[in-house]
Amino acid sequence: MMALEVFEEIKGKGFSTVAIYNILMGALHKIGDVQKALSLYGEMKDLNLELDLSTFCIAIQCFVENEDIQDACACHNKIIEMTDVPSVAAYCSLAKGLCKIGDIDAAMMLVRNCLGNVASGPIKFKYTLTILHVCRSGDAEKVIEVLNERMQEGCRPDEVICSAIISGMCKYGTLEGARKVFTNLRERKFLGEASTIMYDEILIEHMKKKTADLVLSGLKFFGLEFKLRAKGCTLLPR
Rank of each mutant, 00 (worst) to 15 (best):
L147V: 14
L98F: 12
V143L: 05
L98S: 00
Y127S: 03
K142M: 15
G138S: 01
N113M: 10
D84S: 15
L129P: 02
M151W: 03
D105F: 06
Y127H: 06
D71C: 06
D139H: 03
Y91F: 14
C73V: 14
E81C: 08
C99R: 03
A72E: 04
G102H: 02
G154E: 08
P122L: 13
V146P: 00
G97N: 10
V134D: 00
E145K: 14
D139Y: 00
K96I: 11
D71V: 13
C62E: 03
K126H: 11
H76T: 01
Y91T: 00
A89V: 15
I79L: 08
F125T: 07
L94I: 03
H133A: 12
Y91G: 08
L115Q: 14
S87T: 12
V88Y: 01
E145V: 05
G121F: 05
V118A: 04
K142E: 14
E141S: 13
P122M: 08
I131G: 04
P86R: 13
E141K: 14
E141C: 01
I131D: 04
L147M: 15
H76P: 00
I101Y: 11
C135V: 09
L129S: 13
S137M: 07
C135F: 04
M82N: 11
I144S: 02
D139A: 07
V118Q: 04
V143G: 05
D105K: 12
A74Q: 15
L132R: 15
H76F: 14
C73G: 00
A107N: 00
D71S: 10
I79W: 02
D71F: 00
A119C: 13
M108Q: 10
H133D: 15
K142A: 15
Q61I: 11
T130A: 13
C114Y: 01
M151N: 11
V111W: 05
N77Y: 04
I101D: 12
G154I: 11
I144Q: 15
L98K: 09
K96P: 01
I123G: 01
L129T: 08
V85M: 03
A90V: 07
L110I: 06
I60K: 15
V146I: 14
C135M: 04
A72P: 08
P86I: 12
G138K: 01
V88F: 03
K78N: 10
E81I: 02
M109W: 00
N148L: 13
V64E: 12
L94W: 07
E153A: 14
C73N: 02
N66S: 14
S87L: 07
P122Y: 00
I101P: 05
A89P: 01
D103R: 13
L129D: 09
Y91P: 08
K124I: 10
V143Q: 01
M151F: 00
V146F: 11
M108K: 08
E145I: 03
G154P: 05
F125Q: 08
V85L: 10
D139V: 07
A140S: 13
E67F: 05
M151K: 10
I144P: 00
G154A: 08
R150L: 15
S120E: 14
V85K: 15
C114H: 08
V64Y: 02
S93V: 06
K124Y: 06
D105S: 11
Q152Y: 05
R136T: 12
N113R: 12
L147C: 06
K100Q: 12
L110G: 06
S137D: 08
E81Y: 07
V118E: 04
A89T: 11
E145F: 12
C99L: 07
L110V: 03
E81P: 02
C92S: 13
C75L: 02
D71A: 11
